[in-house]
Simulated assay, not measured.
Amino acid sequence: MQKLQGFQKVAVIGGSRYFGKLLVQRLHAAGHQVTVINRGSTPPPAGVEHLVVDRNDEAALTAVLGSRTFDVVIDQVCYTPVQAAIAARVFAARTRRYVMTSTIEVYDPATAALPAVPPGAPVPESAVDPAAWLVRLDLPWHDEAYLEAHYAEGKRQAEAVFAQQPQHSGRPGFAFVSVRSAHVLGGGAAEFTGRLAHYTGRITQGTPIAVHAEALPTVFIHYEELADLLQWAATATDATGPVNAASDGPLDVHGLGAVIAAQTGREPVYREVGAGEAASPFSFDRHYAMSNSRAKELGYSFSRTTDWLPAAVAETLAA
């Protein structure tokens, strides 16, 4: 595994909360020269440069960057191909490497016509190839309701813009890696989605949890591990293209409930949903649990979900 050597100039787009905030802290602690680019809602740690700008405003982003260049850009908040196209143009001559945080949702077979994966087989990165994915910049990506309804497709097309960047930036660009994150969990205040709290609250109160009749497994990652993997991806130069990020050991909703039950001493109560009825988060009736083999082959070592999940549950219960 080849790595960028020495301390680096790193730009983080976003980086104001959750694993992005932790990533900024870790990059700074490691001695890197860090620049955070966001709209200014939360200041970064002391010693970290802060550029306040709307990334959607290409002229403003270009102006605030000035003559700055970076060894690596880590993009935490790219959701649409329009945002990616702006970034591809602005950073084409400003960085050697670009890391985008993506998602397991790109593999959801309910959101696109994807290659069939054998039932239960971990889904590899090749199931969604951004180098060949169709980009539609003309779709209403600026509309929040449209974007929410097409979150997975927005991420797929954003990846595609970066993977096909000469076409969208008009010039040779940078090495690109998309980190496709599993469902991110943490404990207490670190778990900003509230999904783990949804389960701990219902189980401690004896409230039924809505699940599918045949709930299928999914994969998870602790927010600290994701921050660590993003830092690794920023410097591991052999890693290009899509990389799945998931702790070892898939769990279905019942396995998650069992871990919580062991902490609470209360058995979960489940209620099967009817056709078309929404289930609780992490109950899935379709298979798209990711394989993490490629990251391992590139040199990254994952924890096991069951090693860190009990502590995250305990922290959530304490909060």
Rank of each mutant, 00 (worst) to 15 (best):
L4D: 02
L4A: 11
Q5S: 15
F7Y: 14
F7D: 07
K9V: 11
I13L: 15
G15C: 10
K21T: 00
L23F: 04
H28R: 07
H28C: 09
H28Y: 03
A30F: 06
V34K: 11
V34Y: 10
V36Y: 00
G40N: 03
S41P: 06
P43C: 03
P43I: 03
P44F: 12
P45K: 03
P45V: 03
A46W: 03
D54L: 04
A59S: 13
A60I: 11
T62W: 09
G66S: 11
R68A: 14
R68S: 13
T69S: 15
F70S: 05
D71F: 07
Q76T: 09
V77I: 15
C78V: 14
A85F: 14
I86Q: 09
A88R: 09
A93D: 15
A93F: 04
Y98V: 00
T101W: 00
S102I: 01
E105C: 14
D108R: 08
A110Q: 15
L114D: 02
P115M: 01
A116C: 03
P119D: 15
P119F: 11
P122G: 02
D129F: 06
A132C: 11
A132H: 14
E144D: 11
Y146N: 04
L147I: 06
A149L: 05
H150G: 03
G154N: 04
G154R: 02
K155I: 02
K155M: 06
Q157E: 15
Q157F: 08
A160V: 12
P166F: 12
Q167D: 00
H168T: 01
F174K: 00
A175L: 12
S181D: 03
G188Q: 08
F192Q: 14
F192G: 00
A197Q: 03
A197G: 04
I203Q: 02
T204M: 11
G206H: 07
T207K: 03
P208I: 10
V211H: 10
V211K: 06
E214C: 05
E214R: 14
P217W: 15
T218H: 08
V219G: 05
V219T: 15
Y223I: 05
Y223C: 07
E224H: 06
E225S: 00
A227W: 02
A233T: 01
A234Y: 09
A234P: 05
T235D: 09
T237N: 07
N244I: 02
A246E: 00
P250Q: 13
V253K: 05
V253A: 13
G257P: 09
G257S: 14
A261G: 12
T264M: 13
R266G: 03
V269H: 10
E272A: 05
E277P: 07
A278D: 11
A279R: 10
S280R: 06
F282M: 13
H287V: 07
K296L: 00
E297D: 14
G299E: 13
Y300M: 03
D307C: 06
L309W: 10
A311D: 15
A314S: 15
T316I: 05
